[in-house]
Design a protein around this nucleic acid. Structure first.
Lengths: 200, 200
DNA sequence: ATATAAATTGGACAATGCTCAATTATAGGT
DNA sequence: ACCTATAATTGAGCATTGTCCAATTTATAT
């Protein structure tokens, strides 16, 4: 069994998070179990609760971690597109990309619900808002405007648009509906919205 | 305890479904329990499994039921709009309406996942496709075209668009992001897409 | 009435999340 | 070096869940 000399508190947190993330990645949120995480890292179930308090809070932390990885990969695709590339396509592809590469992690983000009383940690909140910020700034750049309220509203609406397409694509909701190119459809909707805004 | 003389098989199915639906409506998918349903209808846990086989299949059946109610309310709003009314707005409002009135039931539809091996029943599949059919026909009517592949693709894309907005609105994802009018944004995106199609 | 078929029960099992007294390890002071 | 206080870690215990299935109860047909 694990002893405190083996891992510092920070290391232990990291160990639990990465193991939990791997578990969700391979079994989905439904297959997650705090006890299974404990088994895999060879610590007792009590330790998990000492560090994260609750299985729900652990899952929330794992999801925040997923968010960070998602934002990172999104940023990388934007950088790869370059200043004169098709950055809108990169944005949409970045959204879909992480979901396609890590469907269970991506799905867990949106399937998990905290119990009614408790909300997200401050750290969780800020960690998750990064992705939105990237998109808002990118949309501002695309339409050549400042980041005012109406632009932020548009950006969020575009995120929602892409999200809806991605959610159906990943869940397989329309795998049998014969939808061949959900990402292309999402991109088309985004371009139409941006064109409409520019033509205003 | 329940006896077979109290309820026919069909009545029993209905009793379990409506009780389960009520349970999800008040406690969410996370608060659902087959045993709690059994307690509420005063039958044993074994009976639930005799009728529905598995808790997951019961939840799937409850969700199909929700789908039916959703489609019904959507149809009613379309009828209320009349032939010359704003039927596109009615469509979007119908999507949001059910979600707003029954957030837990609506959320359960998209949160629930069947175990990897088993899929939906034939009955579940057809029951759920109704909503899509309504939208496809309505979009065909709006753009004045036949129901060909490209139109069906557009319709599904619009459903995805509205879905994304609705999902964020109901989950409270952007309640704290200061998003005031998710439904209005969804409607705007749909109108832009339809306008782009008409201008083709 | 009796026999056959079907529905219903509920105890048993494995698994889960969470709690908390007991145990064990670390660090600090003398 | 020893002792002490502080902190980390354990794991048995409890309530709860889904699923199974042998035994029981009920309905129906003969």
């Amino acid at each position: 069994m694990g002893r405190r000399s083996d891992h510092s508190r920070a290391e232990l947190e990291e160990l639990i998070l990465s193991t939990g993330s791997a578990l969700i990645a391979e079994s989905g949120l439904g297959g997650f179990s705090a006890r299974e995480v404990a088994r895999r890292i060879d610590y007792s179930i009590g330790t998990i609760h000492n560090v994260f308090g609750t299985a729900d809070r652990l899952i929330a932390a794992i999801n925040t971690r997923s968010f960070a990885a998602w934002a990172k990969s999104l940023r990388e695709r934007l950088d790869a597109a370059g200043p004169d590339g098709d950055r809108i396509a990169a944005l949409v592809d970045g959204y879909f990309g992480f979901a396609r590469e890590h469907p269970h992690l991506w799905t867990a983000i949106f399937d998990h619900r905290l119990p009614p009383d408790s909300g997200l940690t401050e750290a969780d909140e800020t960690g998750r808002s990064l992705l939105t910020h990237i998109v808002v700034e990118e949309i501002a750049h695309a339409v050549g405007g400042d980041v005012d309220d109406s632009l932020a509203t548009l950006a969020r609406s575009l995120i929602a648009t892409v999200h809806g397409h991605c959610a159906f694509a990943i869940s397989g909701a329309w795998a049998l509906m014969g939808e061949a190119a959900p990402e292309a459809a999402a991109l088309a909707r985004v371009r139409e919205a941006l064109a409409a805004r520019s033509a205003r």
